[in-house]
Design a protein around this nucleic acid. Sequence first.
RNA 1: GCGCCUGUAGCUCAGUGGAUAGAGCACUGGCCUCCGGAGCCAGGUGCCGCAGGUUCAAAUCCUGCCAGGCGCGCCA
Length: 623
Amino acid sequence: MGNASNGHDSSPSFACEARKACVKFRSLFSLNSHLFFDTSMSVGIVQEQVASAITNALLEARKRGALQSTNFPEPVIDFPKREEWGDLSSNVAMSMAKEEKRPPLEVAQVIADQLRTSCPLLEKVSVAPPGFLNFTLRPDCWFSVLEEVERTGDRYGHGTVGQGQRVLLEFVSANPTGPLHMGHGRGAALGEALARLLQAAGYEVDKEYYINDAGRQMKLLADSVYARYLELHDRECSFPEDGYHGDYIKVLAQALNREKGSEILNLASDAARRECGQWASEQLVRAIKDDLERFGVTFETWYSEASLFSAGKIEAALQALEQRDLVFIRDEATWFRSSEFQDEKDRVVRKQDGDYTYLASDIAYHFDKLQRGYEWLINVWGADHHGYVPRMKAAVNAFGYGDDSLRVVLVQMVRLLRGGEKVEMSKRAGEFITLQDVVDEVGADAAKFFFLMRRSDTHLEFDLELAKKQSSENPVYYVQYAHARLASLFRTARERGFPVLPVGDAPLAALVQPEELWLVKQLSSFPGLLEASAGALEPHRITFYLQELAGLLHVFYYKHRVLPPRIDGVKEDEAGEDGEPSELVREDLSKELTMARLVLLKQVQTVLKNGLGLLGVSAPETM
RNA sequence: GCGCCUGUAGCUCAGUGGAUAGAGCACUGGCCUCCGGAGCCAGGUGCCGCAGGUUCAAAUCCUGCCAGGCGCGCCA
C-alpha cells in the first residue's frame, strides 16, 4: 500500500484521534459456541473479521499443539495508538499468557505465525512488547466498510444487542408548576438521545413523562394562582408562604380570569382552589409540551400521578407489597420494609394523617410500569435526587424484579454562562432562564448538542455566546458544517456531471492517501461506538466521535481535491522550483480518483447524519 | 456523622485494564487563482488529588485519606 510520505510524517493530530476513536471490540461469544457472527453485526465488520481470524488461529494452533489453554479469552480488537504499529491490534496474547504459562511475547509469536499462514486479509502481522499483536490489513479490506454504510444507509451502525427488549424511558417529568428551565433541557436532550441510541441498539423504547399533578406542589400551585386571581378582583388574600412567585402565575391568573370571569369567586374556597389548580396545571402541562416539541422532544405517554389515585393503583401496589409481608404499621403510619433490599432504613408510605407519601405514588407508578410489560426501566433524574435511588430499587426488587431492571441516570446542574460570565438565576425570586429562552437564543440544535457534550453526571457549563458562534470554536457548527460542506460538494458534482456511483461500481483502488484511510477507519468504528454508548447510557460519546469525524473530513478536504479544477487555464506550474513540495498536494485528479472520493465522502456524510440524528440534531444541507 | 458523585494541561473536559495519557478553548505564528476559509497547519505544557494494594500491565479495579458538590423528612 502506498504508505508513502515517511519523510515529513507530521501526521496531524487527528490521525491520533482517529485511531483513538477506537471502540474496542469484544467478542460476545465464547469459543465453544458456534455463534460467531450471530448478534454482533454491530461492532464493525472489519474488526469482526480480524477477531474471528484470531479465534480461528487460536483453535488451529491448539489443534497442532502450539497452544495448551482450554479456555481462550475473548479477543479484543483495538486501534493501535500509533500509526506505525498498524491498522488494528489485539492483546489476546497477554491475557492468555498466564494460562499458557509462557511469556506474552512468546504466545503472541505463536498466534502471529498461525495468522500469517491462515489469514489472507492481513498484509502484515507483527509482535510488539509486552505482547501486542499488530495487524496491517490489505487496504481493500477497509472498503467493505463503505459497502456496509451504503447497504445499511440510515441504519448503519445499528445493532441488535437490545434483542427487542421493551424499555420504558422516563425523563423530564418536571412538576407542572412552572416553565421548564435549563436543567430540564439537559434532561430532555439526554432522554431523547438515549431513546434514539437504545432504539438503534435494538431495544424497543417508549418515552414517558410523569406528571406530578398530585400532592403538595399542586396545592401550592393552586393556592398561588387562586391568590393572584383574587388580587385581580381586589379581594383580600395573603399570598402563600411557599407559593410560586414567578410572573407566569399572574399571567395564568389573568388567562383564567379571561376564560372564567368571576365565576370562581362564587365557589367555596376549597372548590375554588381545586378549580384553579387543575386549570393551571393543565395549562402548564400544555406549555411544557409545546416547549418540548419546539425543542424536538416528544413522548409516547404523559402519565398522570393523579390517575394513580383515581384508578386505585396506590392501594393495589401497597397490597401487593403487603402480600409479600413488606409493609408494617408503626406509630400509626404505614411503612415499606425497604431495608430488606439495600436501602438504609424503612420508609413511610402512608402518613399518620392517612395521606400517602410521594414514595407511595412512585412505588405504584413503577409497579405499573412493570405490569405494563417493560423489561427495563430507565429514569433520568436530577442528581439531587440520588438519595432516592436505593428506595426505588428496593421497590422494584420488592416486586420480584432484579436490580438491573431499573437504571437511574443522574443529570447534574447546568451552569449558564454568557461570554464566560456566569448568568445568575434565582428560582425563589422567580427569575430564571427558561429552556425556551435558550432555544430562542441559540436554537434547538445547538442547545441539544451542548447539553450532550458532557457526561451527564458532571456539571455542565453552557455558554450562550459560544453556542451562537458560527465558527470552529463552536462544536455543533463544526460538525454541521462538515455535513453541509459535503452536501454542497455533491450539488456541485451533479451540476458538473459527476454522479455518485454505487460503492460496488466505484474504482476504490484509487483511494490510497492516508487521509482517505483515516476516514474509512473512523467510519468503521461507528457501530462499536454506538453499541458502547448505548450500553453505558452515554450519548456524549457520540458528540466526541462526530467532532473527530468532522475534523478528519476537514483535514482531507483541505489537503485534497475531489472535483477537477473548473478552469483549465490553471497552469501546470512548476510548484516548488527548488524541489520544495507545497503543502497542498497537487495531484493528478484522474476521473477514477474523483469518482472514488465522491463515493467515500458520500458514506462519510451518511455517518455524520446518522450520528447527528442520534443526538436529535439536524444535519443541514446548507447553512 | 452516614451515603452518592466529582478530582486528568491555564480553562472546559474526553479517556469501556494495555504501548510514549488526549481533544476543544485560550495564546502565538502561518495558509485562499480552484469543490463552502463557517476551513486547515505549526508551536507545550501534566506528582492523572494523595498513599497503599490487586495485575504481566492501573488515570481506569480495591482500601484508606484529602478537597469540592449533592443528598440524608410521616416534603415533593
